[in-house]
C-alpha cells in the first residue's frame, strides 16, 4: 500500500464524512464550512486524477467564490440553529427511501460493469496542465466558451434585476 493509495482513501473518507455533515448540521454556517471541506477533498481527488488545473479552479470558484456568497447571504439573513425549519420524520423517511433506491440502482449498475481491471496511471500524463487545456479550449471548444460568456452576462443581468429593490 503506497502513499498514493493512502492519500486516496483518506480523501475519500474525508469527502464522505464532510458531505454527511453538510446535510446533518443544524446550523447553516457549519453546513457551509463542511461543504468547503468536501470541496477541498474533491480537489485532492482531481489532483490524484491528473487534473491539476481543475483542482485549482474548483478551489477558487467553489470554495472561494460561491461559498463566500453563501456565507454572506446566511449572515445577512441572520440564519442560525433556532431559525432552521423543523424536519418532519416522514419527510426524512421519504428522502432516505427515494435517495436510497437511487443509490441501490447506481451501485447495482456499477457492480455489473466491466471496469474492475481499470487502474490508475498516477504519475503519467500531463493532460490536465493549463498549457494543454488552454490550447484545446481556444481551438476545439471556442464556441461553448463564447456561449458561456453570454450565459454569464445574462446571469449577471438577471441576478441584478431579480435582486434589486422594488
Amino acid at each position: 500500500m503506497n502513499i498514493t493509495q493512502i492519500i486516496f482513501w483518506i480523501l475519500s473518507v474525508v469527502a464522505l464524512f464532510s458531505a454527511l455533515m453538510v446535510i446533518t448540521a443544524r446550523n447553516p454556517v457549519y453546513s457551509v464550512l463542511w461543504l468547503i471541506a468536501t470541496f477541498f477533498s474533491i480537489s485532492g481527488h482531481y489532483i490524484l486524477l491528473n487534473a491539476q488545473f481543475l483542482a485549482i479552479v474548483n478551489i477558487i470558484v467553489y470554495a472561494g467564490a460561491i461559498m463566500v456568497l453563501f456565507l454572506f447571504v446566511i449572515m445577512l439573513m441572520n440564519l442560525n440553529k433556532e431559525s432552521e425549519p423543523r424536519k418532519h420524520r416522514l419527510l426524512k423517511l421519504a428522502g432516505a427511501v427515494s435517495g436510497g433506491s437511487l443509490l441501490l440502482v447506481l451501485v447495482a449498475a456499477l457492480r455489473d460493469t466491466d471496469l474492475k481491471h481499470e487502474h490508475a496511471l498516477v504519475n503519467e500524463g500531463n493532460i490536465g496542465l493549463i498549457q494543454n487545456l488552454g490550447k484545446e479550449l481556444f481551438s476545439t471548444y471556442t464556441v461553448p466558451f463564447e456561449i458561456s460568456s453570454v450565459l454569464f452576462l445574462s446571469a449577471m443581468v438577471g441576478a441584478v434585476v431579480i435582486g434589486k429593490k422594488e
Binding site: F8, A15, V22, H45, L49, L102, L106, K116, H117, E118
Partner: peptide, 22 residues
C-alpha cells in the same frame, strides 16, 4: 485496496445520494 475507476465511481455515487437526500 488499489484505487481504481470502480472505487471513484462508488464514492461519487455516495456523494450523489447524500446530495439527493439533503
Amino acid at each position: 485496496l488499489a484505487p481504481g475507476l470502480y472505487h471513484i465511481l462508488f464514492i461519487s455515487a455516495a456523494l450523489f445520494f447524500i446530495g439527493v437526500y439533503g
